[in-house]
Design a protein around this nucleic acid. Sequence first.
DNA 1: GCAATACTTAGCCTCATGGCAAACTATTCG
DNA 2: CGAATAGTTTGCCATGAGGCTAAGTATTGC
Lengths: 111, 111
Amino acid sequence: MANYSAALDGVFTALADPTRRDVVRRLGRGPRSVGDLAREFPMTLPSFMKHVRTLESCGMIRTVKSGRVRTCELRRERLAVLDDWLGEQRRIWEERTDRLEQHVTDPKEPS
Amino acid sequence: MANYSAALDGVFTALADPTRRDVVRRLGRGPRSVGDLAREFPMTLPSFMKHVRTLESCGMIRTVKSGRVRTCELRRERLAVLDDWLGEQRRIWEERTDRLEQHVTDPKEPS
DNA sequence: GCAATACTTAGCCTCATGGCAAACTATTCG
DNA sequence: CGAATAGTTTGCCATGAGGCTAAGTATTGC
């Protein structure tokens, strides 16, 4: 469970941008080519490609070039890092809640 | 379920920084003062305060100043926006999976 | 082969982010 | 009151993110 920090940095940063979240959402319905996706966003292709590269380098998507077309596919399993982080948070909260309840149950606990 | 985009921007951006994730983790164990927290990070107080403000303005924490001490408290419920987003993603994926399975079940489906 | 298509690369610009030091304000302790 | 404590404000800086245009490369259709 060591240090997922770099992975978390990448995934959270990638998803912090609405364009990239939108790409993830669209790719959820199935693979698409870069150009095909890009047409749906109000920016130039080079700009859009940066988002694709960002998503790829944090592992959220996989891309393959075949001929002159680059196809993007979502890597759903990558969101596990978010689940893990959320899970860890909740574990910490529950520990705390347990401690608090213990104080209530056993009021002669030293302050 | 309209447009959580601004909230998502804020929360994802806040959590994209390791210092801020760390603050969230520490606050999971209970409220702390700014100075108390700051001592555990290798940066100056003003720099640290920026992180606190970022977390506060996206709603991840609440802070109250009493006397000369500002106390920070986690707002656990704020992570619901992440749960919602993850949930929406999964819903989309499942819809897709259903469609794919339908093609397998009913192979005379037109291409 | 030539033109159109689908990216890629290069270079540039602007703004936001994260960090700093110095100086200031407001509380609290002795 | 005066000093120490706990933040806060200000101003500065370097870097990186996200966007653009222009020009280049590699495929594919006619």
